[in-house]
């Protein structure tokens, strides 16, 4: 069952539409948890509080530089591991630190052996300013084991696009601040097939992550 490019594109569009619809619910005042519950019929039968995906994206074929300055192949180095993937930038004041902080708080509630089963990967959308050192300092505030990747913006854009995530060029504002893109969602890849099975909008509550991380660590099907 080889996947044609057309089918992949269609799947990405579907997932993006779901994400947009969810965000629309969130901005009208509904809590993310309850919004997630109504997005799809599958959600009702899923053990996860995050949104089960019907399009199971492959991990993007992405090799960038990690915070130790070494090449890091996302596919090879997270193979067979539950992986949480988020795109963002460190000078982002609101969504990025909130999202990574919520994951960090939930991770710290897990037993150490479960923590080791989950790779949390943050891919920079502002590689020019997010050097390995800048990324490491920022990520250490959340969790010293979080992986940070930086490198070619074109590669990052292509990888994000394959997951239905739009990454645009950073804009340097008059006051010197930088506005870049962040994903609207965190994607969870399961160890069974290294594909994305659960989506978390970036305003998902800590409680939802705390509920789902033990399931993700065990690789429970969505």
């Amino acid at each position: 069952m080889p996947r044609t490019p057309r089918r992949l594109a269609g799947a990405a569009a579907l997932a993006l539409t779901a994400a947009l619809a969810l965000t629309a619910c969130g901005s009208s005042g509904a809590r993310p948890g309850s919004a997630n519950a109504v997005v799809s019929k599958e959600a009702n039968s899923s053990p996860y509080q995050g949104t089960p995906l019907t399009a199971h994206f492959d991990k993007p074929d992405l090799t960038l530089t990690d915070t130790g300055g070494q090449p890091y192949s996302l596919r090879q180095q997270t193979a067979g591991h539950t992986t949480l993937l988020f795109f963002g930038y460190t000078s982002c004041p609101d969504v990025c630190p909130t999202t990574m902080g919520d994951i960090g708080v939930a991770m710290q509630k897990l037993p150490a052996e479960d923590q080791k089963k989950i790779d949390v990967v943050f891919v920079s959308t502002d590689p020019q300013r997010d050097t390995p050192k800048v990324l490491r300092t920022w990520l250490d505030s959340f969790d010293k084991d979080f992986v940070g990747l930086t490198g070619s913006l074109d590669q990052v854009k292509a990888a994000a696009k394959s997951l239905g995530i739009l990454v645009e060029d950073p804009v340097v504002n008059k006051d010197g601040s930088v506005t870049s893109s962040h994903g609207a969602q965190v994607l969870a890849f399961l160890p069974s097939d290294d594909r994305a099975h659960v989506l978390y909008l970036s305003n998902t509550s800590q409680d939802v992550f705390a509920h789902d991380l033990p399931l993700l660590a065990k690789g429970v099907a969505a």
Binding site: T90, S91, C92, P93, D94, P97, T98, M100, G101, V134, T137, W138, S141, F142, S177
Partner: peptide, 11 residues
């Protein structure tokens, strides 16, 4: 929230 980065970008 205490800013996470060295640039002290805060909300």
């Amino acid at each position: 929230p205490l800013p996470a980065g060295a640039d002290q970008m805060a909300a």
